[in-house]
Amino acid sequence: MSDSKNIIPTMAEMNAKGESPEILFWVGCAGSFDDRYKSVTKAFVKILNKVGISFAVLGQEESCTGDPARRAGNEFLFQMQAMSNIQVLDGYNVKKIVTACPHCFNTLKNEYPELGGNYEVIHHSTFLQQLIDEGKVKPADGNPFEGEKITYHDSCYLGRSNNVYEAPRRVLEALDVELVEMKRCKTNGLCCGAGGAQMFKDSEPGAKEINVERTEEAIDTGANIIASACPFCLTMLADGVKAKDKESEVKVFDLAELIAKAEDL
């Protein structure tokens, strides 16, 4: 594992040199600020460096897509965010965006076009699957996860919202893991409890926290690793594992972290 020798160009730097990258990596707020998710961001950047793809980030010019504002009902704030983001993206003539956040993915892909922002947007699970299909990422035999029992938690904004069910599973299969499904999976997947801006407030009174309900279901599969592809799901499930006092037996990882570890990055 080494943290050195990774290049992370910004759009501004590339633009100054008159270059334009093949893809923009949209890091997202969780990927930029959340201590846990920053490691996903770093893992993904290492993979991008390893395969040698031309990419850039917006750095300090990036800003919230507005997803939680829109879902909490504040359409004004959402559109303010969206329009200023579109100005930045169009200013750099961005064509293709990859992001590790299903909420950013959904908003950029489905909701920006109506405000004039048209980009090819793909989620990092699909991107990783493409790298695997193209043979650019080949988790070696004897990778640390071979034969491990892993369950995958579907993010609502990736699955039901955008029908991305197979790509994350194909990524896990490439690691030769034993993939076990929870009872509520794919179209019937149970939410982690964070969507619709719930991430940013306490839940309403009830009998149980949604993330505990979901974590119990994941633990019941007997998996040692819960794989996720969303920053909010990752937080909710990690909190759930903590609440169930299972931190030593069950780990929660993002797909990019698993691939980066398997590739010894």
């Binding site: 707020c29 800003s63 919230c64 504002a69 909490a72 303010m80 965010q81 940013f200």
Partner: peptide
Amino acid sequence: SMFQNIETNFAPW
């Protein structure tokens, strides 16, 4: 508060 954070810090936190 989240709205305010987005307005002033461009992130929900």
